[in-house]
Design a protein around this nucleic acid. Structure first.
Length: 112
DNA sequence: ATAGTGACTATAG
DNA sequence: GCTATAGCCACTA
C-alpha cells in the first residue's frame, strides 16, 4: 500500500463538509509538499473507488484548478455551494474562511 | 530501470 | 490577470 497515496486518501476523507483543502496542503499533510500533483492523481484514481470528496480539493489560493472542459468542474462548484461555500468572481473560494483545517471546533480549549 | 505524464505551485514577463 | 517556464514527486506503461 503506497503510504503517500493512502495518506492523501485518508486526509481527503477527513475534510469536513463546508471546508476545502488545497492540493499543496494535502500534499504537505501527506508528507511531501511538492507532491501536489500526485494528490490530483490520487483523486482520479481513488475518488471513485474510495468515494472521496474530491470536490473539496481545490488549487492554491482557493482557485479551482480543474479544466472547465471537464463536467466535474461544474459539478464541483455546485457541490461546494451546496455545502455552504460561497465563491467570489468565477470560482475563487475564500480560503481564509473555508480552508481546512480552518477554525477547528475545539469544545475544550476554544479561545476565540 | 527508463520514459512519460499530470484536476500543482511558484516565479517571471 | 494571463501566459510561459521551471521544479518536483509519485504513479503507470
Amino acid at each position: 500500500m503506497q503510504d503517500f497515496t493512502h495518506r492523501v486518501i485518508t486526509l481527503i476523507g477527513q475534510i469536513p463538509a463546508g471546508q476545502v483543502a488545497t492540493y499543496g496542503q494535502i500534499a504537505t499533510m501527506a508528507g511531501n509538499h511538492r507532491a501536489a500533483r500526485q494528490v490530483s492523481r490520487v483523486l482520479h484514481s481513488c475518488s471513485q473507488k474510495y468515494q472521496l470528496p474530491w470536490h473539496r480539493v481545490i488549487g492554491a489560493g482557493g482557485r479551482i484548478t480543474i479544466p472547465k472542459d471537464l463536467p466535474s468542474h461544474q459539478r464541483q462548484l455546485k457541490k461546494l455551494q451546496s455545502e455552504g461555500i460561497q465563491m467570489g468572481l468565477g470560482d475563487t473560494i475564500d480560503l481564509s474562511i473555508y480552508q481546512w483545517p480552518g477554525t477547528t471546533p475545539d469544545p475544550h480549549d476554544q479561545n476565540v
